[in-house]
Amino acid sequence: MTGLPIGWVLGGVVFLLLLLAVLTAYLFIARAAEEKRGRRAAAYLERNTAAWFRHLRGLEPAGEELIPKDRGEAAAVEEVFRSYLNNVTGEAIRERIRVFSNRHLSSYYRKKLSSRNWSDRMNALYRIHDFGVDSLAEDCRALGNREVSRDEQFQLLLIDLAFRPDGFVERNIHRNGQISEVENKELLFRMPEDVFHETARRLDELANDTKYALIDVLGMKQDIYWLPFLEKQLDSNDQELRIRALRAIDALGIRTPDPILDQAVFSPVWQERFIASRMIRRLPEKKALQYAEVLAGDESWLVREELRGLGPALERRRLEKEAVR
C-alpha cells in the first residue's frame, strides 16, 4: 500500500452519490406535494370562481366556502385577487379585496413576514401592498426597523405610503438615498397630490437620485402647473438637475418660453443644446429656423442629427435669404 487516501475518496464519492440520491428523492417528493397544492388550488378555483365574481361585484357576501383552508387555497385566492386588480378597476372591488384580505389572510401574511426566507417575505410584502392589508401596517414597520434588503426597503416604503400618507415625507426623508432612481420614480408617481407637493417643497433636502427622479416625474406628469418650479431649477448649480429640468419642460409639450430656449440654444453643455434642438420643433417655422441655423453647425453629432428633419426647410430659408440679398 502507498498510503494514498483511496478509501477516503471512495467513501466520499459514494457518500456524495448517496446524498444526491436522497436529494433526488426529496426533490421528487417536494414536487409531488407542490403538484398536489396546485391541484387543490385548481379545484378551489373551479368551485369558487363564480362565487368570487358575485362577491367582488357586490352581489353577495363572502361565504364560508371562500375562506382558504390551506396554502394551496390561499394561493388560489391570491390569483383571483391579482386577476381582478390587474384586469378590473373599481374602488368597490378593491375595498372588498381589502376587507377579505384583512379578515382572512392577515395571519397567513404575518407568518410569512417573519419567515427567514427572503422570497417569502418579499411575496408577503407584495400582497400586503397590492391587497391593502393595512392591519399588518405595524408588523411592516417592525420589519422596517430590522436590517432588510433594498428590495424590502422599497416595498416597505410603498406600504407606508399607501397606509399612512400623512407624515410620510417627514418619516422617510432620511431614507431617500437608500433606493434607486427608478424606485424613487415609482414612489413619487404613487404619491397622493399633497404628499407629492410636500416632497417637491423639500427638494433641497432630498438626495440627488430622488431630486432627479422628482424632476423626471414632473415631466412625465405633463402638468403645466409645475413650469415655474422647473424654470427655477434651471438656475441650479447642479448641471444634471438643470439638464433634467430642461428635459422635463420639453416633456410638458408646450411652446418653450423664449428666455429658456435662448439659454438652452447657446448653452455650453451639449445635452442642453440637444434638448433645445427638440424644443424648437414646436415653434412657428420662422422662429424655429432662426434657432436651427445656430444649431445646424453644432459640434455635437446628436444635436445636428436631431435637426435633420428640418434640413429641407433650412435649405429653403438659405435660398430665400440669398434671393433677398
Partner: peptide, 26 residues
C-alpha cells in the same frame, strides 16, 4: 503502485465530473 494512482484519479474524475453535473441538474 500506479494501479492505486489510477483508481484514485478515476475517483476524482467521477467526483468532479459526475457529482457536480448531477448536483447542477438537481
Amino acid at each position: 503502485v500506479y494501479y492505486e494512482y489510477a483508481v484514485l484519479l478515476m475517483l476524482l474524475f467521477i467526483l468532479y465530473g459526475t457529482v457536480f453535473s448531477i448536483g447542477s441538474v438537481l
